[in-house]
Simulated scan of single mutants.
Amino acid sequence: MAGKNLDPSSSPRALLGAELRVARERAGMSQAELGEPLFVSGSFIGQLETGTRRMHLEFARQIDEILDTNGFFARNCAAAAKSKYPDHFAEAAEAEALAKTIRDYAPQLIPGLLQTEAYARAVCRAYQPTAPEQVIDELVESRLARASLLVDPTTPLLWCVFDEAVIRREVGSREVMAEALRHILALVRSHRIIVQVIPFSAGAHAGMMGLLKLMSFDDAPPLSYAEGNGTGQLFDDPATVARHVLNYDLLTASALSPRESLTVIESAAKDYEHA
């Protein structure tokens, strides 16, 4: 292993994780034993091995030293770190692609997994009003690529809770909004996703601080992701994840039922179409 490099074109993070597992087992160490000198948990090492988490250079150098891998992980760390997503969201997006269940709370915008091309373009242009068209095209392309995980009819389970502002705020144009809401309705009616709406009448609720994403996996501990203006953080600390799970449960309790939510979204789509 020490004399080769990973092929950046073939899922480098997954390959790097697989090589880490081989090197760790060859050294006769458990995940917890490898994590101890790195001051991380055994579950974090497991997430590196499954490709759920990104291996940063500082960890790669220490792993090379501990496992005596002749600089392999440091050399290949850069290839595994490359991402088409913004830095603050890259790890969350890549973990999302491996998740068994995804639960999203959206306070202002339709979640990226559910956006149409026209809606995504309007959002990206609003964020970067002076960016060249090529930059916007690349941002839209990467956002739409995330939705490919919905091609599978059953996995992952996607449950979204929207604040009513998501469907009432006109993004792009009335035509863009009508198309975006019809797209969500089609996914709900095909039983591919679950959607709930928190109405304005609910008043204050547990999600007013910002976007929240929860992810669970078959072979790794759950993660949560919280995002602000141009910032985001992925969490694996059990206490933090548990607190975020509670927040999400409170949000679903404040929301309309899925059937009632479907009616509200349908009504909003008609309003945009006929106004």
Rank of each mutant, 00 (worst) to 15 (best):
P107E: 00
V140G: 05
L157Y: 08
L185F: 12
T130A: 09
R189S: 15
Y127N: 12
S201L: 12
Q108S: 06
A180V: 11
A186K: 15
A106C: 03
H183Y: 15
D163V: 02
V171C: 07
L158Q: 01
I193F: 08
A147R: 07
A145C: 06
A145H: 12
A147L: 10
C160V: 11
C124Q: 15
S173N: 10
A178M: 12
G112K: 01
A93R: 05
W159M: 05
L149S: 04
C160D: 06
L158Y: 09
P153C: 06
A180T: 12
S190R: 15
T154L: 02
V140P: 04
L144C: 08
I167F: 01
D137P: 08
R192L: 13
A106F: 04
A204S: 11
A126D: 13
E133R: 01
P132F: 04
Y127S: 12
R103Q: 07
G203V: 11
G203I: 03
A97K: 07
Y119L: 13
R168H: 10
D104I: 11
P129R: 07
E170T: 14
S173Y: 10
A147D: 05
Q115S: 08
Y105W: 07
H191E: 14
R169N: 10
A180D: 10
T155N: 02
R143P: 12
A122D: 08
I184L: 12
H191K: 13
K100M: 09
R168W: 06
E179K: 11
E179S: 15
P199A: 07
T154K: 01
T130G: 00
A145Q: 13
P199H: 03
L98K: 01
I102D: 00
R192H: 09
Q134F: 00
D152Y: 02
P153V: 05
P153K: 04
R121V: 09
R121S: 08
L113K: 06
S190E: 15
A180M: 12
V123A: 06
R125C: 05
E164L: 09
A99C: 07
V151K: 00
W159G: 03
R174L: 14
T154Q: 01
